[in-house]
Design a protein around this nucleic acid. Structure first.
Lengths: 235, 235
DNA sequence: GTGGGAGTGTTGAGCGGTTCACAGCGGCGG
DNA sequence: CCGCCGCTGTGAACCGCTCAACACTCCCAC
């Protein structure tokens, strides 16, 4: 037990949001924070659940998504190790607005509202950091909305790939950028708001044209410039 | 001059975000805050401008919008008297992500980043209030995105009308709700991401069906329940 | 090995919504 | 009072994307 508490403190101290807290504060937070483990595909929370805390990803990936009445899925975000999700419900205490699903074997650190809020009042710098996180999210979501309304399918897809490249890209042996994340065409479609068939069509074109390569669910960006070209041009 | 300074302090004190500050704090803030006036249709700021402050609307309405490469417009929000906009750029100092345009004769109070940020570090309650504002915006924008991807045109239009009803609705003499805001079909289209012609078609249907009425650019909601029905059903 | 499930590749039909084109109409400025 | 401009109303043509359908491959479980 002691060992686990120590681990938690270490994890907290390593997190960008909290690294400026004092040792005592970290300890206090660590004691109230819970570790939780999730199998791939398991649901962490669902839209409408009471939102009483936020999660920091220690290991694995989590997708934040939402479902329409007729079963379509929209992936709002994919959170990497070191990332944060569920902050909104932590901060305003309202129900969750989206689902969270573990994509891989995932470990999370759960910070509960009741324990966390007091820190916020005492540590303005922490609040400022959180504000920065929220602003970034807001910018992302606005951009996503603009893309959806202004751009056609290929442009949106190209943008999504480039964005994924930013977040999950790793230089590959042959000079391209491999997305270190297994994605089915369906998942990509859900990220961009486009049917699986259309994804297939465009990705197929681009593979033949040498812009991208796909290998067992892993996408490689081969010609970034060409994708950027497609991404910005609509007319 | 003294009178203007006094006015500003009063305005600040009346604002929900700031009403819990002390008299001295308000005075300090008031001295650094600038009043600005804008004619209908005039641009307050544009996407890409350096974002060095946020605005509180004292009089009039302001629309927050964004433009695509080929000239289409997306209206993200319409800010009423008492409302706030431009907070994001104030908080993170990044360029503005959208345009702001005065819809009517408008007076604004401009709070500059350099003057405002220090308050945030000293007044955690203020930071918490701002966090709440950001969370609300984030929820709105996410919902907007979901609507856009999940719903067809009539549902989105119905939702937009109902939302406008919340914000600008006033009970009318004949039992309906008048939207206290002059809106062309084009503007409505820009709010929902739908062409003017489609708006015309659906609004026409609904007028004939008695769900809504339009009078000189002012929309009245006559059958709210029917609109809600349309709003939620997609399939 | 074999069956089944999940993912991929491909197609053609159909539809929702845009685009274009144009006709009326009201209001405001000259 | 006339002319113009912005808004509304409407229909036809078009188009990008979805939807439904199916064949094929891979891989894992049994």
């Amino acid at each position: 037990m002691v060992r686990i508490a120590f681990d938690k403190e270490l994890v907290l101290a390593g997190h960008f949001l909290l690294r400026h807290l004092s040792r005592e504060e970290l300890r206090g937070l660590a004691q109230s924070a819970a570790l939780s483990h999730h199998a791939p595909g398991s649901v962490i929370f669902q839209k409408g659940d009471p939102g009483d805390g936020m999660m920091a990803v220690i290991r694995g990936r989590v997708k934040i998504c939402s479902h329409s009445a007729d079963g379509k899925e929209l992936v709002l975000n994919i959170v990497n190790k070191g990332g944060l999700f569920g902050e909104i419900a932590l901060l305003d205490g309202e129900p969750r607005t989206a689902d969270a699903v573990a994509l891989e074997e995932a470990d999370l650190l759960v910070l509960r509202r009741a324990q966390f809020l007091p820190f916020l009042s005492e540590r303005p710098d922490l609040a400022l950091r959180l504000i920065a996180v929220l602003c970034k999210r807001l910018r992302q979501t606005s951009a996503h909305l603009e893309d959806t309304l202004f751009l056609d399918a290929p442009s949106r897809l190209a943008r999504a790939l480039l964005r994924l490249g930013e977040a999950f890209g790793r230089p590959a042996a042959d000079g391209g950028f491999v997305l270190d994340l297994k994605l089915s065409q369906q998942q990509i479609g859900n990220l961009v708001g486009i049917s699986r068939e259309s994804i297939n069509k465009h990705m197929g074109d681009w593979q033949r044209g040498g812009l991208v390569a796909v290998n067992g669910g892993y996408v490689t960006i081969r010609d970034r410039a060409a994708l950027e070209e497609i991404a910005l041009a609509d007319a």
